[in-house]
Design a protein around this nucleic acid. Structure first.
Lengths: 212, 212
DNA sequence: CTATTCAAACTGACCAGTCAGTTCAAATAG
DNA sequence: CTATTTGAACTGACTGGTCAGTTTGAATAG
């Protein structure tokens, strides 16, 4: 039997471990060489598992990758929402800074996921179009809330589209994180956070031109 | 004979046109489905040329892509440097805004190039590692100069690493441009520019609100 | 006893790169 | 002005290899 959805609750004993190994192995390989550049045989070998097991647990290479994306986003979301004092009544700008710090840590810890994301995200008709749309919305919602809190506590520039701003922050996190790992390993986490936070400081209204 | 460098001066008649058609076709296809996802046969067919011609003009699929990257960067660089009043003594912040506007126009006009760039840029051992390092440096140099001009004309936050800031701007241009095309076509060019410019406004030091 | 994993063979499609041969425009010769 | 030559540009069938996905039957573990 090859179930479309392998029993998740019934026998998670071996399965859970196997899936985790497959996630780890494919995250690494796919991040390095791209989804199309990695073979199922390689993934199986790297996970120390037979090829048949991959097809038993995931129906196809495509499904494996879709679930890999979901897996990574769950981790990232948890980090962003778990940023110290994300919710309580602290300074929203500090909360924002903590959140971006968490994002940078995530990019450093899972660079392969970040590469997978930026590699496949904007492909026009992609097998994972729907997956990306959904996951992107989930992540943006977290960012949106943090920006919203800033906008409630500070005067912000109303001429700046909130959505575009969130997109810029979202994208900058990935790009700055990846660039640091690839081209500028000497840059510190805090430098990266500060550069991205410049977006927020520019969004908060500076005293209007002394016209009145 | 199959020259490594096809006669550039002697018989550029057909060759130039052929190469341009191959650039156009492969930019489109590779942007959509990724470098590994497109076959040389497809590229040849889309360019209305035989497969052999591809190998006659470019030594390999890999070379074709490397030259494609160079081609696109040349166009982008020309746009950025040609931004209205990029050099003269105008307000550097306005010059910066014009440059980012040019970048957004480029992303809208050559979305496939932008996708190719973000797809392959951060792969760890990539065939085009050297190519990317070089081209990236060229583009960053243009941005760097514009930021430098701002820093000369305005007081800026010295605690922000110039390099990280430039990276953030560079990356934000690609991501915001691509996101607009893929997920938010209703957003305007100017909204995108404004969101990215928030980085610069956050970099320029705001005086503490004077009595008022 | 059943869910899971294994190993290995198999298929059918696909693909990068090659090569022997063809086209064509310009140069040269008559 | 016509005929011939030359070689860059181009062609497309072919090769050797790869890969996703399937199947099978046996082993192992909960």
């Amino acid at each position: 039997m090859r179930p479309a959805e392998p029993a998740k609750k019934l026998r998670p004993a071996r399965t859970t471990a196997t899936r985790q190994r497959l996630f780890d192995a494919s995250m690494e390989l796919i991040g390095e060489r791209g989804a199309a550049g990695v073979t199922v045989d390689e993934i199986a070998a790297a996970a120390g598992v037979s090829k048949g097991t991959v097809y038993y647990n995931f129906g196809s290479k495509s499904d494996l990758i879709a679930q890999l994306l979901r897996h990574g986003v769950d981790i990232l979301k948890a980090r962003l929402m778990g940023a110290p004092d994300g919710g309580t009544g602290q300074d929203p700008l500090l909360a924002m800074e903590a959140m971006i710090g968490q994002a940078m840590d995530f990019m450093a810890e899972y660079p392969s996921f970040a590469r997978l994301w930026v590699s496949e995200n904007w492909r026009t008709p992609s097998e994972w179009q729907g997956t990306f749309t959904l996951l992107r919305a989930e992540l943006l919602a977290v960012i949106s809330e943090a920006v919203e809190n800033v906008a409630k506590a500070y005067p912000v520039d109303p001429s700046v589209s909130r959505g575009s701003l969130e997109t810029a922050i979202f994208g900058a996190c990935f790009v700055v994180g990846l660039d640091r790992q690839t081209y500028n390993p000497e840059r510190t986490r805090n430098q990266s956070v500060a550069a991205i936070m410049a977006i927020m400081r520019g969004y908060v209204i500076q005293q209007p031109a002394p016209q009145g």
